[in-house]
């Protein structure tokens, strides 16, 4: 087979194999390793300067406080510079708007600029059902029952129309996603719009609400019996024998022992530490700026 033909075939195959493989000469895509080499190569005329890593180590709770700074673990789409630029934008936005820490199960109040509302703002209170995405695409859903009808609204965390994010009650639940609230009693999803915020002492551990709800009658929105939920009970009463057997058959109990799966879907510890120390450095910098601002002289 001629060399040229081999090369043509090689260029047809998507060479996104291992990080440490051999970069094929004629391929259309570059390995991460080769790209990084070229960015820092001596021979390039716009060589990227080596950055000094921030000297401070971020506190351990930063990983839970700022999970949106950790990038998507899909290695096919990752790039160091995209993530860097994204983090810059996120930190700039955080300097303008205070985005507090919250988890699925916390009760939030969000004020959004609305061109159609009188006063041009709109306030919604609800329990956070889910928090998805990372980086600038981080989003969360709030659920509340208003006038006997359940309402859910999806908000993008870094959307520039969000005026205020208040955490009225900071707590966690037994599950990461609370979509089952749609099929439970509506009283568990009702929250008063004029609810008083519950103070959370800074530094204290986040309380976990152990409440276990009883699921409502069928039809259900999703197959709750196949999701290993800890915050719901009473599923077996509504299931038929066939369905229970099918659930057992399709269950994957070995998933929790799958180390490679968790490894593939997570960011390496060293890298996440480096990213979070950047955030910590920026927070300290902002704090210093606030302290250095002299108070106004009132004569």
């Amino acid at each position: 087979m001629s060399v040229f033909r081999r090369a043509l075939i090689a260029s047809n195959i998507r060479n996104l194999e291992c990080y440490c493989g051999v970069q094929k000469r004629f391929s259309n895509t570059l390995f991460d390793g080769t790209l990084e080499k070229h960015r820092r190569s001596e021979l390039s005329h716009d060589r990227e300067k080596t950055e000094s890593f921030p000297p401070f180590e971020a506190p351990k709770d930063y990983k839970k406080k700022y999970p949106d700074f950790l990038p998507n673990a899909d290695w096919k789409k990752r790039d160091r510079i995209t993530e860097k630029l994204e983090r810059k934008d996120m930190l700039r936005r955080r300097a303008v708007l205070n985005i507090p820490e919250f988890y699925p199960g916390s009760i939030l109040a969000i004020t959004v600029s609305d061109p159609y509302a009188p006063g041009k703002y709109n306030r919604f209170v609800g329990i956070c059902i889910a928090k998805n995405g990372n980086g600038l695409r981080t989003s969360f859903t709030l659920r509340n029952v208003v006038d006997n009808i359940g309402v859910e609204i999806l908000y993008e965390l870094y959307n520039p129309t969000i005026q205020k994010v208040e955490v009225l009650k900071l707590e966690k639940r037994l599950d990461e996603e609370l979509y089952y609230l749609r099929d439970c009693d509506p009283k568990y999803s009702t929250f008063n719009f004029n609810m008083e915020p519950v103070q959370h002492p800074p530094g204290a551990p986040i309380p976990v609400n152990d409440i276990v709800l009883k699921i409502g009658p069928r039809p259900w929105n999703q197959k709750w019996h196949r999701q290993n939920l800890k915050g719901v009970e009473g599923l077996d009463e509504h299931l038929r024998e066939v369905e229970k057997k099918l659930a057992e058959k399709t269950a994957e109990p070995w998933e929790k022992y799958d180390i490679m799966k968790t490894y593939r879907n997570s960011i390496h510890e060293e890298e996440s530490e480096r990213i979070l120390s950047e955030v910590y450095e920026k927070n300290l910098h902002n704090q210093k700026l606030k302290e250095n601002r002299k108070p106004l002289k009132m004569d």
């Binding site: 009808i149 359940g150 309402v151 859910e152 609204i153 999806l154 908000y155 993008e156 129309t161």
Partner: peptide, 10 residues
């Protein structure tokens, strides 16, 4: 729905 647009239970 898209972001900022409410979704109802009915």
């Amino acid at each position: 729905q898209k972001a900022m647009v409410p979704r109802f239970d009915s």
